[in-house]
Design a protein around this nucleic acid. Structure first.
Lengths: 226, 226
DNA sequence: TACATTTGGTTTAATTTTGGATCATCTGAC
DNA sequence: GTCAGATGATCCAAAATTAAACCAAATGTA
């Protein structure tokens, strides 16, 4: 996997990301082409082709004899810090958010909301043997809970969190923790939470959600130890 | 599920998911067909068929001798919704976040953190007659609380929230609610919260924060009625 | 100003990588 | 048994990467 030869398209993608990430900023001069080629372990030709592509896309502007300069103003948004977070931090954040979200669900939820959540529970139960499908339904469930609060801000926050959660190696790690037994336990807990919400018992719902998250935290730390 | 052989349709579904998820992004080059076939444990023929299907669907574009490239722009996301939120929603979100942040402060806070918070309390008390200065110190206080948790994600969330809060008409509305009496009450509550954290009493700290937010909510609704 | 250095620009040919295509065979479902 | 689909091996041709050498523009320095 790692030994693969890089092509100009790969380098272009790499640099695009560096620029977006802020490693290189507007008006900065990139290192000399020979040096960059060396750093990335690629021929200068290849690197030059990557830069040419980026120039077409408007990321950079290169002047003979002088250098290559960034000409790209990243829209000031903000997925960057999110990428530095880790699964345990995520669980803590969910500990903060989701129990209270349950309380708000009790306040603002309607029959339709609950039926929708019920449907997602069904989907999760059908997916006991398919961690990928389960994870998808699980995400949808927690998103639907947020939506039930009718609180734009909370919905947005949960959305952001889910974006992170779906990235990169997380998923792999996540699936490590998802065997059939765990999934069954999660399913039972989801049902309990939903029932408490249906019965309009905010504190019980919140507490059940805490239990659920505690379970998730446990299986996560356990997976991390192996 | 695990025993059955994967077919081209399965691989196509898998890749579609990877692309939507962002594992592979626009302009990225996929691994070589031989390599991917190997990774997914299928024959190259099978994998090529999957790619052919994805090409028809417009997910990728494959060029002989070069590679196959992602040509799919996942839905653009989502900073706007933050601007549609309102002060009451904000309070609810803070109700979710800040009590738990207090608990985490108890866990992760050091002497230095507490001294810093103490300093901010001082600043707020000096600003009883200056709503603008008070509001600044107040924001700083709640940010510092988040920072004390050491949780990147929570810090980021609070940051985002504060960005919204500092915008537009909010400030005006906010200052309506800030007479000297309210400010004094807030200050007392801030001190109480900080003390509970210092004494390492997580639940008391959380409850005091809830009280504080309840006060804020009240003065907000009262201001809205006038 | 004159000169040396650094930078990007270009060309070349050899090599490597990549997808395209075919075919005999194996496997599982009906 | 039949048949659709997966397999794995092989050969092909298109395209890209490489490496080395040389050119030209910009820059820095004495």
């Amino acid at each position: 996997m790692t030994g693969r030869k890089l092509g100009s398209a790969d380098i272009a993608a790499l640099l695009r990301r560096e620029i977006s990430k802020g490693t290189y900023r507007l008006h900065d001069r990139l290192p000399a082409s020979r040096q960059m080629a060396d750093e990335y372990g690629v021929a200068r030709n290849t690197l030059r082709e990557a830069l040419a592509q980026l120039e077409v896309e408007g990321y950079v502007n290169t002047r003979a004899g002088s250098g290559t300069y960034i000409t790209f103003q990243e829209k000031e948004t903000n997925v960057a810090p999110l990428e530095d977070t880790n699964p345990l931090e995520l669980i803590d954040a969910r500990f903060a958010l989701e129990p209270h979200i349950c309380r708000l669900c009790v306040l603002h939820g309607s029959r339709q909301d609950f039926d929708l959540l019920e449907g997602l529970c069904d989907r999760m139960e059908e997916a006991v043997d398919d961690p990928v499908a389960f994870a998808e339904a699980d995400t949808a469930f927690h998103k639907a809970l947020a939506a039930t609060t009718r609180n734009t801000l909370l919905i947005w926050i949960i959305d952001q969190i889910n974006t992170v959660r779906s990235l990169d190696e997380w998923t792999r790690m996540r699936h490590l923790t998802l065997d059939g037994a765990i999934i069954k336990k999660y399913n039972a807990q989801h049902r309990q939470v939903l029932n408490a919400i249906r019965l309009r018992e905010p504190e019980r719902a919140a507490n059940l959600m805490k239990e659920h998250l505690e379970t998730a935290r446990l299986s996560l730390t356990r997976a991390a130890e192996t």
